[in-house]
């Protein structure tokens, strides 16, 4: 399982869009890179002994069969509901807890060592315990996703709130603003670059943990399909599921990037 990592807010900003002709060029480069990957994939498939690997074309056909045959959709729905539930709760709880730790220093000083400790512990180690407590179903899986996704959100929210500009906080206090108002209008907006970075890492780990949970508890969803096709050496179907998972990941991170760009308009293009 991937470890939660603390990352500083991304500094890349919107350089690609700022460069002359940037958006089109980036899209072209990305498609070009995809073509290179597909070529190498095809070459690898040609070189591998029959039945051990599948070509891009075979995978595309398998994806079509899964989509038309119908076994993809229930699995996708199940995985997405687990993924979005676990990650969504992680975002809310993580920001609330991180903000509390950052605003009330004794709480932060008390908890941060434990959060770091838990963040460095492979969450897969807790799965037997979670099964004992919650069984093999939806709740257990959501908890596995939550535990993975929540750590970077907490740590980034904590760091972001502590990085609040004391001059702006004092200005707000001078207007008579309450703690809640200072949090909502000064501290959290200032921490937004940190929060978005934390959510982006959390969302990635959440997807990984979704598959882990589906492999370690009741085998179901996209993780279940991976186990099924993997054990039967149906490599085209197996890789088709991998492509679906990658697509979910890309959609999520690109969506978050759009949200970030919209919410951080005030920074402008630097």
């Amino acid at each position: 399982m991937a470890e939660a990592r603390f990352l500083p807010p991304p500094l890349e900003r919107t350089q690609s869009a700022a460069a002359p002709g940037g958006v089109g060029l980036v899209a072209a480069l990305r498609l070009g890179f995809l073509a290179v990957v597909l070529v190498f994939w095809q070459l690898a498939a040609n070189a591998a002994p029959g039945g051990l690997f599948a070509s891009p074309f075979e995978v595309a056909l398998a994806l079509g069969r899964l989509a038309v045959g119908g076994s993809l959709w229930p699995a996708l729905g199940e995985s997405l509901s687990i993924y979005l539930a676990g990650t969504g709760v992680a975002v809310v709880v993580g920001i609330a807890l991180g903000a509390l730790m950052g605003m009330v220093r004794p709480v932060g000083r008390t908890l941060d060592i434990y959060v770091h400790g838990l963040a460095a512990t492979p969450r897969v180690a807790f799965i037997p315990l979670i099964i004992v407590l919650l069984g093999l179903g939806f709740e257990a899986k959501v908890l596995v996703v939550f535990l993975g996704a929540v750590m970077p959100v907490i740590l980034n929210a904590y760091a972001g709130v502590r990085a609040a500009d004391p001059d702006l906080v004092e200005m707000a206090r001078a207007t008579g603003a309450s703690h809640g108002r200072i949090l909502a209008h000064v501290v959290l907006p200032g921490a937004l670059p940190f929060l978005v970075a934390g959510v982006r890492i959390g969302a990635t780990i959440g997807l990984i943990n979704t598959v882990v949970a589906e492999l370690y508890t009741a085998v179901a969803g996209l993780g279940g399909l991976l186990a099924l096709y993997g054990s039967r050496f149906q490599m085209a179907e197996y890789l088709a599921v991998v492509v679906v998972l990658a697509t979910i990941g890309v959609t999520m991170t690109e969506g978050l990037r759009l949200v970030e760009r919209r919410m951080l308009r005030w920074r402008g293009r630097e």
């Binding site: 702006l168 200005m171 206090r173 001078a174 207007t175 008579g176 603003a177 000064v186 907006p189 200032g190």
Partner: peptide
């Protein structure tokens, strides 16, 4: 004095909220 009620303050460094 109670902050916000007693007086309004202007600072050397402007202290505008950049996201507003």
């Amino acid at each position: 004095p109670v902050p916000g009620r007693a007086a309004a303050m202007v600072f050397q460094s402007y202290r505008l909220l950049p996201w507003k």
